[in-house]
Design a protein around this nucleic acid. Sequence first.
DNA 1: CATTATCCTAGTAAATCTATAGGGTAAAGA
DNA 2: TCTTTACCCTATAGATTTACTAGGATAATG
Lengths: 136, 136
Amino acid sequence: MLSKKTKYGIKALVHLARQKDRVPVQISTISKTENISQKFLESILLTLRKNGMLGSKKGKGGGYYLLKDPKEIPMTTVMRLLEGPIAMVPCVSLNFYEKCADCIDEDACAVNKLMLKVRDNTLEIFRNTTLADLSN
Amino acid sequence: MLSKKTKYGIKALVHLARQKDRVPVQISTISKTENISQKFLESILLTLRKNGMLGSKKGKGGGYYLLKDPKEIPMTTVMRLLEGPIAMVPCVSLNFYEKCADCIDEDACAVNKLMLKVRDNTLEIFRNTTLADLSN
DNA sequence: CATTATCCTAGTAAATCTATAGGGTAAAGA
DNA sequence: TCTTTACCCTATAGATTTACTAGGATAATG
C-alpha cells in the first residue's frame, strides 16, 4: 500500500510542476488546493528539499519551487525518496538490497522469482514516467 | 512491502505444489524446510484452508494438501488472499475499490493515473503466473 | 521591526505486523 | 478403547510503522 506521505508528496510535486516560471508556492496554498493537512505537508516538503528535489524561500512571497525541469524528474527518484524501495522484497531491490534471513538459495526461491518480475515491470513504468507526464 | 505472511504463504504453497499426488504434508515439515516459525505458519495455512485453497487431514499421516492443480491457481488469487488488494491505492483497485477522501476529481489525479499503470502491469504478471510456474 | 512563511525537533495515538501461548478436537493405529 | 499424532481456534502482546500534531526558532521582506 502506498503511504499517504508518498501520495501527498506526489500531489504536491505535480502542483509545483504545473506552476509557471518556478514561482514559489506557499505550503498553505498547496495544502488547501490538494486537501492535505498543512503540518504534515510541511514535513513532507522539508524532506523533498533536503534531498535536492525542491528549493525554498522564506518570508513574504516565499514558498517551495522545483529545482529541475519536470521533464527531467523520473518517478523512480520521487518514489525512492518518499516511499523507499520500489521492490516488494529487499532481496530483489536494486538500491536497498538485503539477503533474506530465512532463504537458503535465492535463485531457487519462488518469491524472489515472482517479485523480480514485478519489480522489473514497475521500475520500467516509473523510469518512463516523469513529473511532466503526470502534470498534463 | 510484502508481508512475511504472504511470503511464507507462497513458500508453503509452492512446497505443497511440488509434492506428488497431493499427499498431506505436515506443518512441521514445511516449517523446517522453509525456515518458518511453526505457529505462525499454522495460522497462515489455516486461512488458506478456510478460503478453499487447501484441504487438511487430522491425525497420524495428516497434514495439508492443495485442493486444485497448481496450474489452475493464478497468483492473483494467492496474492489477494494473503496480501489483500494488488493495487497500491484503493482508488485503482478492482476488488477493493474505495474513493479517496481527499481527491476531488479522480480522472485528473496524478497518483491515480500513475498507480493505474502499475496495477495493470502487476495484475498481468500475477494473472499469467500460476503456482505451477513457480514450482519448477 | 513587524509580518510572513519556512525550518526543525519531538512526541503520540492508532493501526498493523509478527508472531507466541495455551489449550481443544478429530483421526489413526495398537 | 486408548494413546499418539497433528490440525483447530482464540486471545494476546511486543515491535514497528503510519499519520499526523505541538510548539516554537529562524530568516526574509518591505
